[in-house]
């Protein structure tokens, strides 16, 4: 059975590669509590502070908050990419992380080679690699481009390939960033069915998004992050209303916000 547990998770970003000194002076003055010092007096960005929650099968957690609130950092921490400096993260079950459209694909390699690498990363055998190839090829509609390097793809083609590949492997725990819901309208129509199926099949979903409608329909719980801390936690409608500062069912206002 899949589960996700975050126990007072804190993540700091060390600022090594800037000019630490001047950065220290200006940034400490300006950003106040987002910057701090760790035990060794290094300047750090406090990306997450004591974030706690537990998810069980069936839970769909949405993350909301302004840019830089820590949504992507939280996803990366759950994915095991960033290890916390405080607290702990425990994930049970197979996991798929959809953070950026490139999925770590290599632009010098062909689409087919990238599919093969992704399949081996997920530990698929050769029969399943062939099935994956066919599936991705059909869905992404790349035709002969599949045997050409990604470097010459249009950005839309890269997104299609990344999307087809990412959605072909069905995890128990799905961590998803909002880029996944972006794309050209034609593709989105086709994509949404496939995405919805993956979301449905995943036991646990953690989704970061700015699109309130998506969060309201897909999520069963919303976490409002602000400056790396949990500001609010609860059913999507209630949290969204508090986040927006107005009731959800005001149609004109909602439409206005959605487009903006």
């Amino acid at each position: 059975m899949a589960s996700v547990l975050a126990e007072s998770v804190s993540v700091d970003f060390p600022l090594y590669h800037g000019n630490a000194r001047s950065l220290k002076k200006t940034a400490l003055a300006v950003a106040g509590r987002r910057l701090g010092q760790d035990a060794q007096h290094r300047v750090v960005v406090r990306a997450l502070r004591e974030v706690s929650f537990a998810l069980r099968p069936g839970d769909r957690l949405g993350l909301i908050g302004s840019n830089g609130a820590g949504k992507t950092t939280l996803l990366r921490t759950l994915a095991g990419i960033y290890e916390p400096v405080g607290g702990r993260v425990v994930i049970e079950g197979s996991m798929n992380v959809l953070l950026d459209p490139n999925l770590g694909m290599n632009p010098d390699l062909t689409g087919r080679e990238n599919i093969m690498l992704r399949a081996q990363y997920n530990g698929l055998d050769s029969a399943r690699i062939r099935r994956l190839e066919v599936d991705v090829q059909e869905f992404a509609e790349l035709g002969d481009f599949l045997d050409l390097p990604l470097r010459i793809y249009s950005s839309g083609m890269v997104v299609r390939l990344g999307f087809a590949l990412a959605t072909a492997i069905r995890p128990q725990v799905l961590l998803m960033d909002e880029w996944f819901l972006a794309g050209d309208a034609n593709f989105l129509d086709k994509a949404s069915a496939r995405l919805e199926q993956m979301v449905r099949e995943a036991e646990i979903l953690v989704l970061s998004s700015h699109q309130h409608a998506t969060l309201a329909t897909w999520c069963t719980r919303l976490l409002w992050l602000e400056q790396g801390r949990i500001r609010d936690d609860g059913p999507p409608e209630e949290v969204l209303e508090r986040y927006l500062g107005r009731p959800l069912d005001v149609p004109e206002a909602t439409a206005g916000r959605e487009c903006a």
Binding site: S94, I169, R170
Partner: peptide, 9 residues
């Protein structure tokens, strides 16, 4: 393409 999908191992 529902049946062509793969469960992650």
């Amino acid at each position: 393409t529902g049946d062509a999908v793969l469960a992650a191992s």
